[in-house]
Design a protein around this nucleic acid. Sequence first.
RNA 1: GCUCAAGUGGCGGAAUUGGUAGACGCGUCGGAUUCAAAAUCCGAUUCUUCGGAGUGCGGGUUCGAUUCCCGCCUUGAGUACCA
Length: 950
Amino acid sequence: MQYHFNTIEAKWQKYWAENQTFKASNTSEKPKYYVLDMFPYPSGAGLHVGHPLGYIASDIYARYKRHKGFNVLHPQGYDSFGLPAEQYAIQTGQHPAVTTETNIKTYRRQLDQIGFSFDWSREVRTSSPEYYKWTQWIFIQLFESWYNNESNKAEEISSLIAVFASEGNANVNAVCDDNIEVFTAEAWNNFNQKEQEEILLKYRLTYLAETEVNWCPALGTVLANDEIVNGVSERGGHPVLRKKMTQWSMRISAYAERLLQGLDTIDWTDSLKESQRNWIGKSVGASVTFNVNNHEEVIEVFTTRPDTIFGVSFMTLAPEHELVSQITTPEQKAEVDAYILATAKRSERDRMADVKTISGAFTGAYAEHPFSKEPIPIWIGDYVLAGYGTGAVMSVPCGDQRDYDFAKHFNIAIPNIFEGVDISEEAYAAKDNVKIANSDFLNGMNYKKASKRAIYDLEQLGQGEGKTNYRLRDAVFSRQRYWGEPFPVYYVNGMPQMIDKAHLPITLPEVEKYLPTETGEPPLGRADVWAWDTVNNKVVSNDLVMSSEVETSQHNGVFPLELNTMPGWAGSSWYFFSYMEEKAKRGEDFASEDALNYWENVDLYIGGSEHATGHLLYSRFWTKFLKDRAFVGVEEPFKKLINQGMILGTSAFIYREDGTNTYLSQGLIKDKKVAPIHVKVQYVNASDELDIESLKNDAEFGADYKDAEFLLENGVYKVGREVEKMSKSKYNVVSPDAICEQYGADSLRLYEMFLGPLEQAKPWNTAGITGVHGFLKKLWKLYVGENGLNVTDVAATKDNLKTLHKTIKKVEEDIENFSFNTSVSTFMIAVNELTAQKCTSKEVLEPLLALVSPYAPHIAEELYSQLGNEGSIATVAFPKFDASHLVESSKNYPISFNGKMRFTIELPMDLSKDEIEKAVMSNEKTIAQLEGRTPKKVIVVPGKIVNIVG
RNA sequence: GCUCAAGUGGCGGAAUUGGUAGACGCGUCGGAUUCAAAAUCCGAUUCUUCGGAGUGCGGGUUCGAUUCCCGCCUUGAGUACCA
């Protein structure tokens, strides 16, 4: 009987589905283990071979843990809100829900055919109302919370209101907006409702505020910082502008320190932690207040170098700084205005691209040095960013290269405050090994001491204090799009009101088009039934909306709903908690307390590193928030995280000679001028030869080549190859479907692992797949011969057991270390050895199946059942390693001369050091190698090596 | 510029506390089987002037370095005027 993988794989996939083999239970005697993949966005193109890489790895681990006796939760779902479905809807008019459903079906079929052990009964879709009901609920909880710096956690807003009512806000230590005015309890109690709500909005963890946002005109929406790559939108590569808009924001900055500290408690790669550290961008220093001559206003700056305060020779404000217009003198006004206009015109991208050009303008105003009281000229310059710190810096040209360059360019003085340091060529930015000079009371001190002293003296003056700054900005949470979660928010008198939990979800309304309205409102502005009836608690027609100015007695209680939707990261920031609860029980709460306490957090998370500063940071933020409010019990969502490397495509090129319709085989190009053109990789074989007929018959592009001439070399057309990102536009996408059909899912699984270390990026090249496929055939033949089963009850030989236990040891170590590529080699070696040993012993061959099962589950199930076993192999115990089978009686010693191995000598293991040396030195090969020389030294490491020196 | 990875045969890669560099697979070459092909099986395959040399380059530590230390080069990823 032959290895019919298609039949076998279909059979077992059906068996697993019918028997719910991988359904996890929330009550179990076994220890729990939660393995999670970053869930996919179901795009129209379907899966390519790069997507399953991480899924295969996590599936191997999940299956391994089941063999090891764990209750494993290994769920899957879809991040199904998002831009591509909406863009497609705009083009075709099809409802995004319809295309999303179709795409999910394709994904599911593709995932099923690879044989993953997912518990599909817990599937999550971010776009389903049952799910986003809870996304809306979490949003409400954030709105109803503030961050108390005293308790260092989020608390219910009611506790803040209580403080306001009893003692005002003077002693409140909260994370809030900068522009908070101090008020008394009496004042608070006399504020009207709207005034109180306005104040509370400055404290809430999600808040509505006018902020500078990244506006992408092409996509018609704002974007978060992590959605912008190199100054253009991550999706589509469109330009992004700065724009002031009223938007929902998340006060993630409140969690900056905890997000930073928490990194030390989790098992993630260093590079990933480093990305998050950089993104959070903590810097410790001081805030310093400079008085402005002839003005009431003061300039506040943040500096990491308070020790260099006597080196300040000018101040620089961001052109957008609000004081600029007030302090600029009439003589300088024209120059300053021109400069501001010029910088406003430059896009973010231009500014970034051209860092070298120094520009700025003098305001004509002077600040006063806090200690020396000397006047300091105030400049504006675009190297100071409005969005970081206070948008103003104290410029110390001798200690900061940018200040130095600016001073040189505009001929500003560069006082030297470092003892014995030459600053004629460049600034001295290092903190160590230098003493401060020309700095009054700081003279002779080092960085640490001078900083401390400067802060102390500034505090005495009331002009500064120690301060820690973070680069992490609050995250914009509104999107002007249709295909996202609607906010559970309506507006009374311009103030946002939350809809009660009992009436969630607020489902997406129908619209006739998915574009912004003619007046520039988001697509939800097109909905006719999009108003909230506060009396009947339901969504009603917009026609019923009455102005909130109307007197209460006359008012029908209908108000307009929020028109923005939530960003893509909303649904993905908590989905891992949803999986913890069985679908039927996700009603009263997003997950029961029992479920949350049982599964705690994700033990192993596998996904791409592109989510380093987006999803992975936001998820940590929401988890910490939910923990603070006691909705979940854990501080971190993902205990261990592994990034799988990207699978790259191997693009194929044909070469058209310029000005002709002739295509040259790669070897014929020589000096000719040619244009390389991508061709679909499926028309190219493993030897880089193009199938010209198929290319000419291609439905999409065949017509382009109908009359083309192809010049061959040695009878074939050779294409050029190049490794690039796998992408539709490069025609190098390989779908797993064809591989599964031709070689089977087990071959695909093994091959993806065999390609190399999981974390490394690697090009996809199908050439080697015959190797692993051949291995599966050999494995099959070891069990099943032409006339039926080969396996017998004969006792295992010593060699059989040695091979088996060597394999158990290696595979177990490999899985624990996520070194799946080496396991595949180990299996090959084991099968080669057992075949050579003509092993038929069930005692060896049955445990071997449990080792193979996580990697190639279908063939393992089939052979396991052919051996006469009932049920699935999935929970069979992992074979136990027994070291006694590996004990050797002799060792083939490598004999090295000066560290270089020349030959080996077989010697018994129980020889002493001296006996080994004696045996080696008297060996004729040693004597021949030494050619009469006397060795200076002989190193003998019993059981390892002999090294002869001299 | 800064941060983090990584450089090993024709190719993907292995070598888990410093101890036989190149496991395993692909490809290539030779052979068996076959009328022939596919499939299958067997053998060879780092380079070499046959002394040796050799893990990006140059040093160092060590009896011994792909592995540890110092300096450089290259490639990839992330980040970008962060005061």
